[in-house]
Write a protein that binds this DNA or RNA. Structure first.
Ligand SMILES: [Mn+2]
Ligand SMILES: [Mn+2]
Ligand SMILES: [Zn+2]
Ligand SMILES: [Zn+2]
Lengths: 141, 141
DNA sequence: AATTTAATTGATAATTATTATCAATTAAAT
DNA sequence: ATTTAATTGATAATAATTATCAATTAAATT
């Protein structure tokens, strides 16, 4: 983590103090392409010899979610939330039913349908989430 | 709950004993059109003056899920699972972001896309789940 | 109908992810 | 350097779900 506070601008823009931990977490989130659990982030920090409390990891992630910098999501049948950098692109998730690994996929087949849904059952539609399930190459042996 | 054991056949087919509680729970699931939490099922049983332990409700629901009689699902941002009768139809859920009420919608806009996904990133695609978010009529005030 | 046996149940403890609390620390403004 | 409010760590609390185990009961057998 040479550099130390590469995210000072982002944090300042959101009215958050620039701290070692926030910068480290943003670094981890930025480089990773797979969504991570809070615990996974915690363990990565440990590997980097960064001492931090798990509750602080949760707190920082939740703070960044509330600012829209990070996206929180969860998969059916899993009881932990995952976090990833908000790259401002509409995306969905492909989940391995074996190891629960989750990868992001671009694209959405849903645009026309969502228009058809306008007013479905009196709801105002505001968004959607698509999870695609499968078996990853590793789990196929 | 006149009748008492209307689901004896289903239960026998699955190798499960026909008990008052299992029949009562299947009755609740059959008549309801909205997915229910374990606790909601528990409370409905209380209303019917049926004494049961919450852990038994969880156990029975989970047993019926393992037999494919009931479907368990959960919504992102909610931390409780919901259960509904498996009516063997491909469906999705429409969730109110206000009150978290969940209604089922038929239809799927996803068929062509799923074919395109065959082999996506080396995964074997086995299924998908679509959640549609919106604001229900009640929550619109 | 009585007996046997394995499944089911209730009560409760344990688990797990997440959130709340609060005193101590620290970033940033002055 | 001082002040002040935000952040942090350690820990307790919460909430949904799961595990445990003795007591009960459905169904098979006699
Ligand atoms: Mn989409
Ligand atoms: Mn579908
Ligand atoms: Zn896998
Ligand atoms: Zn609503």
């Amino acid at each position: 983590m040479q550099g130390g506070s590469d995210y000072k601008e982002i944090l300042k823009k959101e009215g958050l103090k620039s701290t070692k931990h926030r910068n480290a977490i943003l670094g981890i989130m930025e480089e990773g392409d797979e969504p991570l659990t809070a615990e996974a982030v915690f363990l990565k920090l440990k590997d980097m010899n960064t001492s931090i409390s798990l509750s602080t990891v949760y707190r920082i992630l939740e703070t960044l979610v509330s600012k829209g910098v990070i996206i929180k999501s969860s998969v059916t049948c899993e009881n932990k939330a995952v976090f990833e950098m908000n790259r401002m692109e509409h995306k969905h998730h492909l989940v391995c039913t074996g190891c629960k690994r989750m990868v992001s996929v671009e694209g959405c087949p849903f645009e026309e349908y969502e228009k058809k849904l306008k007013g479905l059952r009196g709801f105002d539609i505001t968004g959607h989430k698509l999870e695609i399930y499968g078996v990853c190459p590793d789990c196929k042996r």
